[in-house]
Design a protein around this nucleic acid. Sequence first.
DNA 1: TCCAACACCCTACTCCGGTAGGGTTCCCTG
DNA 2: CAGGGAACCCTACCGGAGTAGGGTGTTGGA
Lengths: 214, 214
Amino acid sequence: MINRTSALVIDDHPLSASGIAEFLLSHCGFAAARPVSDVAEFWAALDPVNPPSLAVVDFWLPDGASLGLLAELKQRCPTTRLLAISADDDAAVLDKVRLAGADGFLHKQESPEVFGRAVAALLQGDSWFYGGVKFAGREFPNKELPVTAAELGLTARQGQVLAMMLKGLPNKRIALNLSLSEQTVKEHVSGILERLGARNRIEVITRLRGRRLE
Amino acid sequence: MINRTSALVIDDHPLSASGIAEFLLSHCGFAAARPVSDVAEFWAALDPVNPPSLAVVDFWLPDGASLGLLAELKQRCPTTRLLAISADDDAAVLDKVRLAGADGFLHKQESPEVFGRAVAALLQGDSWFYGGVKFAGREFPNKELPVTAAELGLTARQGQVLAMMLKGLPNKRIALNLSLSEQTVKEHVSGILERLGARNRIEVITRLRGRRLE
DNA sequence: TCCAACACCCTACTCCGGTAGGGTTCCCTG
DNA sequence: CAGGGAACCCTACCGGAGTAGGGTGTTGGA
């Protein structure tokens, strides 16, 4: 016999977990919603005889534990619906959680209304993933830290070249894109390297990893 | 006259925001805590005549609005204490929010106890940042998506080489690190490129951006 | 007016990245 | 035992990356 009205919420941000649990209680008709913030606590809170009807799992648990947790939970409690959530905007996350056995996935920044609809869908036996077009067409905010050319002490032109360098374009294509000679691009690249104290473009790319230009 | 017991919480994850607001009410002695999820709503909720004693600001607001918000809020309500929070683990975030005028910064995955202490410190006029050693010594979970060599169809050796490639090391240093000839490293690099369908190491680096090996 | 900074172009050179085509050893599996 | 694959090494070669050292034209400030 399945307990249709209990839920487990795991998120390493305790406040986030309790916020979600609170929402399940107040807006989704759950009789019980237990927030936990680490994997050990999760398994301790899980009653295999009377499994929860829903588990909400944050993707970004320490050590990437979420995928293993999803897979194991799917085996141990096949009747429990699994909703993965993430603050992230990488499409690869969606594939990963789906493969790991999640029944649904959504972003934390979704409105409570969407969250509620996803939960309802899962409880009805449906799955909830962003479909192909919908997912591709969705505009995800770019979470890379923005940096301006001026901030790096670069000229505007050098900034344009740097942006293409960071995309991995070779000098020849940068030259074509900017309608320059390859040699002029090299000049700008040399200027950038000197300014940033890097030995080659690869150092620039690895050093500015996680940053976005302009 | 400052209202010492009201707070504003802005986070683009509504459930997260209300979770934090709830916590401020139940555990930090606040009489009012308003959760909002976008910038417009934030300014609408702000009463300049009777400013809140605390504002909790998520760093990852859409369009990087948080820094501007912090700076403007600091000007408009200099008595309001500003606590920036982030799910991120980049040290650059800390510098940015401090420069923007935040009085404190902490990670969302902190326990409620730490969160409460930070709030108390801010209300007393102290600031709350991870200090130099404490910050450097702190172990931040790496949030890059882990990928195994096997997952990419690579041999163990190729995996080791790839890991160093992603750090930006040239072939010569990879050879030294692994006690190999530079030529053997090139063999492995060629194998990796073929396997991943890349033309050169730069394509590999840019393509695997945001991933971590093993 | 002169000079500095920027953007643009050139030739010529060195060094590193990557490929091609040879080879040896070890280990595992049919 | 034969075969294949992985790891290791070599020489030789090509092309891109980056430097050195020349040059032109424009702009804007001392």
